[in-house]
Design a protein around this nucleic acid. Structure first.
Length: 676
DNA sequence: GTAGGGTTAG
């Protein structure tokens, strides 16, 4: 029998299931009783990872020892089969076997994973009755963890308080519990208590507490704990290093974060990811991209966290090509169905105006939640696809998901950018009747823009009255509507409101100047311009750029500095002649200078967006690729009309990103349906 | 012979 016993132990050690099965067969053949070897065989099967065989044997045993029950329970939990573990626990009680400390410390996790609050509370009661709650550190810390996961921090703290001999794990469990509920200050208090009582924090504690300091922006404590990490000899532990660099980056000390990263000798996937995240959050997108590339070179594969973050970097810098490369990596890793990576890709393609790709990413997501759907709705909104956005909004509700504040911002923006005024008003009214959504100033801003742009200025002004503390952005939105509709009188009132809130607000002066200019009130224009001069406000010059064959070309209005100016102007004049025959009519309302009509027309000809498009067309003649141009300010109304005709004339798709949104020109039409 | 806590994302 000892012979079999050691054979079983050996196969368990080498994790050789075949050997174990052979031994098992021989045990049966030899007629040995299971009461001696059964438990050992079960242990062997568990160690070899075959829970099914362990269970089969377990069911055949004539009597079962508490240790075997515990092994069955904990092995099922660690294999993600918490439901089965709970069944074992129930059967165990039914057979009259009393749980011990091992049982409780294991089963609590199953309850928290399955959200079985009642079960957990009942087990807790039993642990109290059996005197195991506060005497055994293992039980107590498992209970603290369980209550924390049930969002019952009070109960967690109560269990914690009752334990006489608090050890490091118990402290850490409570600290982590507070941390995961965003109660970083509480976590820090417990940590101080722990240190004062002479309990030495270990790597788990320090990893967590550093993040707390980061979330609090508490650099002083963060640095103190950095010292503690060094003193505890845990500086080389990956988790400490990861938390250290996260702490520094969350305290906006990205240079220190970089220093920590450069000094570590081994970085795992989480470390690399944390670093990338920190860089992106601190506005170091380019560095993040090169770190991401280095990570790939080091054969560390990115996870959804990494991808989400680096794609965010691509979005904010509109690095479409890098983003596409990362999309390819995402697919290669089989993570294109992941909602985090997917949402980030949708944001990227949405921002870059590639709606087909955004939608195809969305369609392969294996897991949909409100945030993932929000990103698709927002992408539609940004690009003027109002009906598609509304359709998705319906689908979200039909799926039984609850729209949140972001959903409503996105859907209102969609209505706004597509000119769906009635739909927008209806949705806004429905939000007001829905007490679960708190209306923010952003919702109002969106509505005021929607009403104002459709010339319902009185209604827009009435809506502002309802906002408790209207801000500059809100007033400026209304001012913009006044400008569009040439409402000088209201504009002046709005202007004075803005200057009350933000004296010397540059954008406002410029907006009003443009309004006076388009209304032909040149005296006021001159007045405004001198005010602007006095305020030393500079209007940033209009600029457009275009990427042709990986080379970026920048243009300013009337700019002759481009080496291919001659070809550009030739192309431009050729286009002008042809688009005029198609119906293009220069609209001098958009020339905001006091010039005679002829000069106004020729100044329109050389707007930066026209130059950029003319260059791209000249350079890519004979191709059918989409032309993408960028403008630092909003696209001009005359250029908008002109580009539509150019897209019709040349059959080329043109995508223009301005400071606020994308315009897709195709076959003489624009995705914004002339409403922006 | 079995058991407790950690670092990264929209």
């Amino acid at each position: 029998m000892n012979f079999y016993s050691s054979l079983i132990a050996q196969s368990a050690h080498t994790k050789s299931l075949t050997t174990l099965r052979a031994v098992h067969t021989n045990v049966i053949k030899s007629g040995f009783s299971y009461s001696f070897l059964g438990h050992k065989l079960i242990d062997g099967y568990i160690k070899c990872g075959s829970l099914a065989e362990a269970r089969k044997l377990f069911d055949e045993l004539p009597s079962r020892h508490i240790v075997t029950w515990n092994s069955m329970i904990s092995s099922h939990i660690s294999h993600g089969k918490s439901k089965e573990a709970v069944e074992f626990y129930g059967n165990m009680l039914m057979e009259g076997v009393l749980p011990d400390a091992y049982t409780f410390s294991a089963i609590s996790k199953a309850f928290s994973q399955l959200g079985l609050i009642r079960h957990g509370q009942r087990a807790h009661g039993l642990a109290v009755v059996l005197g195991l709650e506060v005497l055994d550190g293992f039980v107590a810390s498992a209970l603290v963890d369980m209550y924390a996961k049930f969002d019952k921090m009070r109960d967690a703290h109560l269990v914690f308080r009752r334990v006489l001999e608090k050890d490091v794990v118990l402290f850490t469990a409570l600290i982590v519990g507070y941390a995961q509920h965003g109660l970083d200050g509480e976590a820090l208090k417990i940590f101080e208590d722990m240190v004062n009582r002479g309990v030495k924090p270990n790597e788990y504690t320090l990893a967590c507490i550093l993040i707390n300091c980061g979330n609090l922006g508490d650099l002083v404590n963060g640095q103190l704990i950095h010292g503690l990490v060094v003193k505890s000899g845990l500086e080389s532990v990956v988790a400490s290093q990861t938390s250290l660099l996260t702490m520094y980056s969350r305290c906006n000390m990205i240079e220190d974060s970089i220093k920590v990263f450069n000094q570590l000798d081994y970085a795992n996937q989480v470390t690399w990811t944390s670093f990338v995240v920190g860089l992106v959050q601190n506005g170091r997108e380019e560095v993040a991209v090169s770190i991401f590339r280095e990570m790939i070179r080091c054969s560390i594969s990115p996870n959804p966290f990494t991808l989400s973050s680096i794609l965010q970097a691509c979005s904010s810098l509109a690095m479409l090509e890098v983003g596409e490369q990362i999309h390819a990596i995402t697919m290669k890793l089989g993570l294109d169905g992941n909602k985090y990576a997917g949402a980030a890709l949708i944001n990227l393609y949405g921002k870059c105006g590639n709606m087909d790709k955004a939608r195809s990413v969305f369609d392969v997501l294996t897991e949909l939640d409100v945030v993932a759907i929000n990103s698709m709705i927002y992408a539609y909104a940004q690009n003027g696809f109002g009906h598609e956005a509304l359709e998705l909004f319906e689908r979200l509700k039909n799926m039984g998901l609850v729209p949140n504040g972001v959903t409503f911002i996105s859907i209102l923006l969609a209505c706004n950018n597509a000119g769906l005024v009635e739909e927008g008003c209806q949705i806004f009214a429905s939000i007001r009747n829905n007490h679960n959504i708190e209306l923010t100033i952003d919702h109002f801003t969106c509505m005021i823009d929607l009403l104002g742009r459709s010339r319902r200025l009185e209604e827009a002004a009435m809506l502002i009255e309802e906002v408790r503390n209207p801000d500059v952005v809100l007033w400026r939105t209304l001012l913009n509507s006044c400008k569009i509709h040439g409402e000088v009188e209201m504009a002046e009132k709005v202007m004075s409101k803005i200057l009350e809130l933000a004296p010397g607000d540059g954008g406002t002066h410029i907006l009003l100047t443009n309004l006076y200019a388009s209304a032909g009130k040149w005296n006021q224009v001159i007045e405004m311009k001198s005010t602007i001069r006095d305020l030393k406000l500079k209007k940033s010059p209009a600029m457009s750029w275009v990427d042709v064959d990986r080379e970026v070309h920048t243009f300013m209005a009337g700019d002759l500095s481009h080496p291919r100016s001659l070809e550009i102007f030739e192309m431009l004049h050729g286009l002008m002649k042809k688009v005029k025959t198609l119906g293009y009519n220069p609209n001098t309302r958009f020339v905001l200078q006091d010039l005679d009509e002829e000069k106004k027309i020729s100044s329109l000809y050389y707007h930066s967006e026209k130059l950029a498009i003319a260059y791209a067309l000249w350079k890519t003649i004979g191709r059918t690729t989409t032309i993408r141009i960028f403008k630092n300010l909003r696209v001009c109304g005359d250029c908008h009309s002109w580009i539509k005709f150019v897209s019709l004339l040349t059959g080329r798709d043109i995508i223009a990103r301005d400071s606020k949104r994308f315009h897709h020109f195709k076959g003489g039409l624009c995705s914004c349906k002339d409403y922006w």
